[in-house]
Nucleic acid binder design. Structure first.
Length: 723
DNA sequence: CGAAAGGCTCTTTTT
DNA sequence: GAGCCTTTCG
């Protein structure tokens, strides 16, 4: 196959420019992913570069997987030798490998947002500061911002000007000490420490530099300063670095993404070749024109000429409904219409919104209507309590210094270890200057002869019991595979029984089973390695990673998550001032421009149809508010739109009433299953039915597949047959 | 010690 | 309206 054959001249140029720095400015739908994959394929197949010597950075794990799949079609085999992943995943790998050089325990755990907050609260406590006066969230964002500029606690103190910053500096210092004591790194550390490692150890850097002959960075407009620094370090020797981005799609400045990276790239690499991809293959001309008219209202931008040979298509539908409920109902009803007319399948449609909170109304409408949907975040699987609990057990098995995990689960399920006992434990551990976990071990050893300890007999027993259980897990973890270890944890921690006694226990148990499905992917690895790979995997997933295109259901997704995706039909809801643009951004011109880019990203996801939907009034934070139409709507010339008002009524929609229109038509015969039935699915293979539940228009079945883990499937769309 | 109830605050986007 | 914290009672 000729790799260059199906590319336009600009794309071809981008693929062939393999020597030296390259900056590709790629408009939406311009075949960016195509260019990246073809470039890598070209390097491997035509130039003969060993895949081991190529590094490709993506924004999400999903993008990485997709790229891998596409590459496999272009150059079969050898793709697994590529280094491919997110900045965070790649840095984690580097630090496990070489972090020792700067004092990082190779068994470090990765702390997510939640863990960070817990640790910050603990820091405040130890410093005798009031968490009400100094909101952990605020401190966290200050620390994140500092870390993305590689400012450590000591530097922060020097920079600190306000009183708040002084406080932050103190907390920052304490927080770092606690991280260190827990052998933990937060997300920002992964990046920052990698840069630090390379700065302080030129010989280690040299190794990576020589290895990576070619470096490729996607979504460059959303990188921050540390990421850029890291990239520069790695490209230091060969200078074959290719970055792809679109300033108009920069929507992560709040996560310290810095558009200056694009400008600096041209400065740091004056010989950079710049390629513009301006032909759009995705959208109709109407959609592209509407998007262009929105984005051109931004002042801070280089004008760009996007064009397309696609047909004009239909105008964007601008819809006004009465309330948030009616908005959701309109969306479902309209999708139903499209499906009935044969214009689209549910899986062709996406509903996009600014804030996660907006998904609830939509979800309710989809459920009521019996329309299949998949929610991309919202559920936040890895943030669920039961999921985090089980992961905390496993983390503690791997790394006994992990205090945050220890404190999380020491009394879950209840073991009679209350707050007071914990305070005593912390105090005693400190007085003995040992970590909490070690203190537990000491207690377990001295059981009985512990008259001088500041604990009651009962407390000692409870604490020691926990320590003994954990020790058993640690011991077994050396011989068990990941699934066996998982099962053992759930069993001897008493977690299974604990859930069984809870009201929503069944639902939460299903989540535990789903996590077990993830563990199955690591079953075949050697014991210790399986555990650390599993923990790393679950620490660095993003919500879009779980999006499954193969399921024919409407996608519910935030505008941020939608970046990089495309759908034939896009509904953007909440097109109101205060929502998009968000009220927090309205007063700041810079932030307002980012909101506009967000709007642009949304519109440009669409291939055939765009609906811009708003509600006349809606419930916001409890009370009802009347919002003006989004100012971004004014930027779209009327020749590109059709407007319609579809008020159902002035009364709030009675949610208990039957749907106003006929429900989405399910296939006439829905097969029935029972738990325990053996079934086969065309993608997932064989498995056993865990549960079966009829809904109004469909049925949902949960199956534990032998290979693919536990899946929740809608029978009207998934093809399942009894074995 | 733990469960339940009541009161408080904040809601943007996420690797 | 949800989640988090504190208080209160058993």
């Amino acid at each position: 196959m000729d790799i260059l054959a199906q590319l336009n001249p600009a794309q071809k140029q981008a693929v062939e420019a393999i020597n030296g720095p390259v900056l590709i400015l790629a408009g939406p739908g311009s075949g960016k992913t195509r260019v990246i994959t073809h470039r890598i394929a070209y390097l491997i197949k035509v130039v003969g570069v060993n895949p081991r010597r190529i590094l490709a950075v993506t924004f999400t794990n999903k993008a990485a997987r997709e790229m891998e799949a596409r590459l496999n079609r272009l150059v079969s085999g050898s793709v697994q030798d590529l280094t491919l992943g997110t900045f965070h995943a790649i840095c984690a790998r580097i630090l496990r490998q070489d972090g020792r050089a700067i004092g990082i325990d190779p068994k470090f755990v990765i702390y997510d947002d939640d863990d960070q907050i817990s640790l910050l609260k603990k820091s405040l406590q130890e410093l005798d500061l009031d968490p009400k006066q100094y909101a952990p969230r605020a401190i966290q964002s200050a620390i994140t911002a500092a870390k993305s500029q590689m400012i450590g606690p000591a530097d922060y103190l020097l920079h600190g000007r306000s009183y708040f910053e002084e406080i932050v500096a103190r907390v920052y210092e304490k927080y770092e000490a606690l991280l260190k004591a827990s052998s933990a790194l937060d997300f920002d550390d992964l990046l920052m420490k990698a840069v630090q490692l390379f700065r302080q150890n030129p010989e280690i850097l040299a190794r990576y530099q020589s290895r990576y002959l070619h470096i490729q960075v996607d979504e460059f407009q959303d990188t921050n300063l540390v990421q850029y620094e890291l990239m520069k370090q790695l490209a230091g020797k060969h200078r074959n670095i290719c970055v792809v981005g679109d300033p108009d799609q920069s929507i992560y400045s709040w996560r310290s993404a810095d558009l200056r990276n694009i400008l600096n790239f041209e400065k740091d690499y004056p010989d950079a070749k710049i390629v513009l991809l301006e032909q759009n293959y995705r959208s109709t001309r109407m959609i592209l024109d509407a998007a262009s008219s929105v984005i051109s209202a931004n002042k801070q931008r280089k004008p760009k000429d996007l064009w397309t040979e696609n047909e004009p298509g239909v105008p964007c539908a601008v819809i006004e409904t009465y309330s948030g409920e009616e908005e959701a109902q309109y969306v479902v009803g309209e999708i139903d219409n499209l499906v009935r007319r044969g214009e689209a399948k549910p899986g062709d449609c996406a509903v996009m919104y600014r804030t996660n909170a907006q998904s609830r109304l939509l979800e309710e409408a989809f459920i009521r209507y019996g329309m299949p949907y998949k929610l991309v975040a919202g559920t936040r699987f890895y943030e669920r309590r039961e999921v985090k609990d089980i992961i905390a057990y496993l983390r503690l098995v791997q790394n006994s210094s992990d205090t945050v995990s220890l404190m999380r689960i020491i009394n879950v399920p209840q073991r009679g270890i209350g707050q007071r006992s914990l305070d005593e434990l912390t105090a005693w551990a400190r007085s003995q200057s040992v970590p909490e976990y070690r203190a537990l071990q000491l207690l377990a050893e001295s059981k009985g002869s512990a008259a001088d300890l500041p604990f009651s007999q009962r407390t000692v027993k409870a604490l020691a019991g926990f320590a003994v259980m954990m020790e058993k897990l640690v011991e077994k973890s050396r011989v068990l595979n990941m699934v066996e270890l998982f099962d053992l944890v759930v069993e001897i921690s008493g977690y299974k029984q604990y859930l069984a006694g809870l009201m929503d226990g069944e639902e939460r148990w299903e989540n535990v089973l789903e996590l077990r499905g993830v563990a199955q992917d690591y079953r075949d690895r050697p014991s210790g390695e399986g555990l650390s790979a599993f923990l790393e995997g679950v620490a660095l997933v993003s919500d879009v990673d779980s999006l499954d295109e193969k399921i024919d259901a409407v996608t519910l997704i935030t505008l941020h998550q939608a970046k990089g995706l495309e759908f034939p039909v896009v509904f953007m809801v909440g097109m109101e001032d205060g929502i998009l643009p968000h009220f927090k951004s309205i007063d700041d011109p810079g932030q307002l421009e980012e909101e506009r880019r967000l709007c642009y990203v949304g519109i440009t996801r669409a291939e055939k149809r765009v609906y811009l939907v708003r509600a006349f009034r809606r419930q916001l934070m409890g009370s009802s508010a009347v919002n003006r139409p989004s100012r971004f709507l004014e930027d779209i010339p009327s020749r590109l739109t059709t407007s319609q008002s579809v008020w159902e009524s002035e009364d709030a929609w009675d949610s208990s009433a039957a749907p106003a229109q006929k429900p989405f038509a399910p296939p006439a015969d829905i097969p029935e299953f029972r738990p325990g039935d053996h079934v086969r699915h065309e993608q997932f293979g064989e498995g056993v039915v865990v549960s079966y539940q009829k809904t109004r228009a469909d049925a949902e079945v949960v199956v534990a597949f032998d290979g693919a883990g536990v899946k929740r499937l809608l029978l009207s769309f998934a093809k399942i047959e009894k074995v």
